[in-house]
Structures are given as structure tokens and as C-alpha cells.
Design a protein around this nucleic acid. Sequence first.
DNA 1: GTGAAAGCGCTAACAG
DNA 2: CTGTTAGCGCTTTCAC
Lengths: 319, 319
Amino acid sequence: MTNIRSIAKLAGVSVSTVSRVLNDHPYVKEEKRRKVLDAVEQLNYIKNANAVHLSKGKTYSIGVILPYLNLPYFGEILQGIAGEALNHGYHLQLFQTDYDRRAELDAFHRLQMKEVDGLILTSRSNSLDVLAPFIGSNVVFCENVYDPAHKKVFIDHYKGIRRAVEYLVSKGHSQIGLCLHRTFGTNSEERIRGFYDSSEAAGHTVRDEWIFNDCYDLQNGRDVLSAWEQMDEKPSALIVTSDQVSAGMVAEAEKKSIRIPDDLAIVSFDNHPISDALNITSFEVPIRNVGVEAFKLFLENEHPEPVILTTKMFERGSV
Amino acid sequence: MTNIRSIAKLAGVSVSTVSRVLNDHPYVKEEKRRKVLDAVEQLNYIKNANAVHLSKGKTYSIGVILPYLNLPYFGEILQGIAGEALNHGYHLQLFQTDYDRRAELDAFHRLQMKEVDGLILTSRSNSLDVLAPFIGSNVVFCENVYDPAHKKVFIDHYKGIRRAVEYLVSKGHSQIGLCLHRTFGTNSEERIRGFYDSSEAAGHTVRDEWIFNDCYDLQNGRDVLSAWEQMDEKPSALIVTSDQVSAGMVAEAEKKSIRIPDDLAIVSFDNHPISDALNITSFEVPIRNVGVEAFKLFLENEHPEPVILTTKMFERGSV
DNA sequence: GTGAAAGCGCTAACAG
DNA sequence: CTGTTAGCGCTTTCAC
């Protein structure tokens, strides 16, 4: 175990001088600095990060809570966080939850144990009441939590869905369905609210059986299309909150010779490359930026203003 | 700062007794155990992970090195690692490299600093010579590195490509191209070797201009298809090492009214849901298992046998 | 400029 | 069963 003490001895200085050299502190005579660096070289010394963490009470690492790792959505947000974290010398610790509340709580426990300096919740499973005792300025939400003291960055899903509905209405649709990840969680609730409000504004009544949920991936999209096909009264258009799901629908429609958009129009969200490839009209959702902003918020200590990002439609052939 | 000492005082016992209770060690009188737990409760005590890490010389966390986070391939492998790690009480630390050698070396530096207990390389940028000094039994490769001392788990890409070629040959193709992620790296080299060997076995000569690389995502696939279209002499079939890329090709073909498989046959790899959705013949590549096995290898200390996983074809309509 | 020494908070060997 | 004590390795105040 070659530690700071052994190099101090070899260099003929005190441990504090070694520490100063190692951390680029000023006020060290060039001569001693050299001796220290030589000793470091000679003994092949490597700093022990855990000792530093303990001593400083910081780890320069941040935890990211997410349900799944194999969905593009979370890949993108992670990419955003990772890039920004790297720029600031931080590392990422991953807490995959599978939407399991206990796994999520475990992450907060790690935060309390100072294993990470902060936490970014890309998606949440526990109620805010449950989490409340653990939330401080080192926790960032990717949703519009109400407490103004909480740091948050989110997409304006309400407006996004409203615009999607309005667009479909402008194209003559009056029978519109919705396809969601889930029905709970702030982001989903905002989408649903947007859907109801804009439907009402257009004079439509929302049909509950036209709201599909648990839609995450391609296969889910294919299943929804099959379900749609079986319906007696079908919506003429579907708003789908994920390109993966839309892609599954389009692919399945192709197989079943269902015409998009003639038989069924689709407005999607994400604007991932696949929507362009499959000619699906999609709202760009800057999730990568959500990641970037989330990390910035974590660092920010002056005025944690909520960051609100907006969606933007890319018109293609699915409507 | 409520620490082990303060709860020892409040409970009227020694710090070691507290430590024993906290770590479920045997031989603690029930009465003292209660007192300790009461004190813990009362003072709202939470263990400091960094102190534990320092004291034990372990962090129970493992680093994962990967180039990108927003590709399904790495999402899947991560998912595999994460699940297995969780089962064993380990955490994941992410080292995203963008294929930057220095970022990769930084991860090894962290290993030396004991910030993580081990490292899994899902993809590698530096030469093995450069990494050699840092490789021990706590490093796992996801490729067939030659050194028998290294822990490794990998897909038999050589055989996979050979079978893909043989399948195409059996379908009457003699003009076969290849579409790769990159040309360097063990996995890619194995694929290329398989391609050359099986082409030779079939009596074909390989045309260099029919080998495309830098193909990672949908857009790359679309570009390749456009390039293919422009060629004077076109291959009649393409082996594509990623479903994402194949999907891009199929989508672009649809737009250009190029018929798959009549104008161009495609054999893909991954067997992700998208290949099923788009009716693409694809070899299942068990990357998720690569992640699972990688973590198991990390834990394994007796006989680190290399783990070799194989691909399996799912015949669909793209050939 | 530099060193001594007091932490940071926990673990574990050892003695009883 | 339980307490004492010596680490784990680094940072940082304070005094010279």
C-alpha cells in the first residue's frame, strides 16, 4: 500500500506538502514539488479516491434514477446527463428501478449515505410525500413537481398534446385516441390533461376506450394496432407519445394492409430518426436537453429556476 | 454529523458493538442490540458509505465502459449487467467514452483509485498493449482477447457471419456485401474474417467497395442504401451487423421503391423487435446475456473460463 | 512555505 | 459477548 505518507517519507517532506502538490495548491517551493513528484513516480503512487471522498464529504458523482436502460428515451437522457457531467468532472452512478418503489428508495438511501452527491430522477415511482424527507437541493426532477423549492426540468407535455390535437382537428379529425406510457406520473397526467382540455375545446368527447396505456416499445405499438383493428368504433387518429410505439404501429399496419394515414392517422412524439425513416409526423421532444439541463440544475445553487422545454412538430406523411 | 461514536455514547456501548449491530454480526446481547437500534432511530443515524469503502477497501460498485448510451446495443448490455449487479448488491458506474481513448483510460485510472471494484469493457478503444498494465482479474472484456488470463465473454461473430453468408449462398446469392459498425476492434475483425473465409469457401471474391462501415444507426442505414443505389455493380445481398441499420435500409428502400428482397436481400443481426416488425431476417445476438455473463465473470475467481455465446437465425422476409 | 496534528467515520484484530 | 485501539488514506486548520 503506497500511500501519501510513504511518498512524504521518500521525498523528505510532510504529508501536507505532498497533499498540496497533489492538489495543485500554491505556495510549494519548486524544489520540494519536484521531489514529491519524483517520489510519486518512483513509488507508482495512486491516490485513493475513497479516502478523498471521506475526507471531503463529496464524491463528485451523481446518481441517475431510471426505470429501464434499453429504451431510447432513457438512453438519450442519459447521454445528455453523461456529457454534461463529464464536462464538470462528475461521474454517473446508475440506479435502474424497473419502476420498483423500493429500488427507487434505495437510491435515496445511497444519497443519504453520501455515496453520490446528488440524484436525478428521470422518472418517478414513489409519491412525493414518501420522497419528501429526502429531497434537497441535490435532487433534480424531470417533471413538473409542484413544490417550488424542488429543482426541475421538464417538457411542456400539456402544450405538446394540445398542439397535436389541434393539428389533427385542423386536418379534419374528430375521433382521436391517445396512446401513453402510463396513466400516472406527472408527465403522463399533463399529457392526459392536455388531451382532455383540447378535446373539449374542439367540442369532442373523450372516449376512454380510445386511451391506451402501458405503451413503451415496438411490440406494444403492434398490439395497439391490432386492438384498434378489432374495435367496432375506431378513432380515425391516434396521438402516440413514443416513436418506438408508433413505429410498431406503422409496421403492423403495413403487414395488415391498413393504410396510414387514410385508415388511421398517427401523430407521434420524440422525433427520433425512426420517425423520419418511417415517414411519421412527430413532435421533437428534446429529452437529451432535459438531461443536460438536469445536470446543470444540480450544480446550480443560486436560483434554481425550473427549466421548461418545448416540443416542435415535424410534419411528415402519417396524418 | 451523527456518527457511529455518537450513537455508541447514547446507547451506552462501544463503537464496535454499534458496528456489530449495524452489520448483523452475531454475538450481541439482545438488550444492547435494542439500545443501539433505538439510538440509531432517535438520532436518525445514517451510515457513511465512503467511510465503509475506505475501511474495507471495496466499494461494491463496478464500472461499465461504453462508447454510446443511446444505442439499443449498449442499452441491452447495460440492462444485463445492471440486473445481475443488483442481484449481488453491486452498483453501476458509467464511463461513456465516445470511443475516446483518454476517456477509456480515465476509467482504468478510477479503478486504480479504487473508485470501482472492477471494470467491464463493452467495447474497447485503446490497444491491449496500452491497457495491459491495468488489467487484472477485476477487468472483464466483451470480446475475444487473446490473453488467456483475461476474463472475457463474447459472441461468436465469426461463426455468425459465416452462417449468414452460407444462408445467402443457399438462396442463390453470389454477390454479397457487408455492413459493419467499424473495421477495427476484435469483434469487427472476427466478423470480417468470417466474411472473407466464407466468401472464399463459396468461391466468391470479396469486393472491398461492398464493405460499408461506420454504420451504427438508422440514418447510417438509409445512407448506405442510397450509396448502394448509386453503384454501377451492386451486391444482390447485404449482411448488416445491426438491426437499427437494417431498419434504416428497409425504410429507405420503401421510400425509393426498391424491393426487398427482390432488388436487395438483407440479413441482419440483433433480432431486436424492430426486425420482427419490419420483417427482416435477423440473427439473434444475445447481448443482454453478454452483460449478465460479464458481471458473473467479474465475481468469479476460481476458473475464469471464457464465455462464448452464439447467434441464432430468425428467418423472415428480407431474403 | 511548511509541518504537526486533528479530523472524516467505519472496521476488525485483539484482549479480556 | 464487549470494549480498546489501531488502522484505512487523505484534507485542512493552525502555528511557526
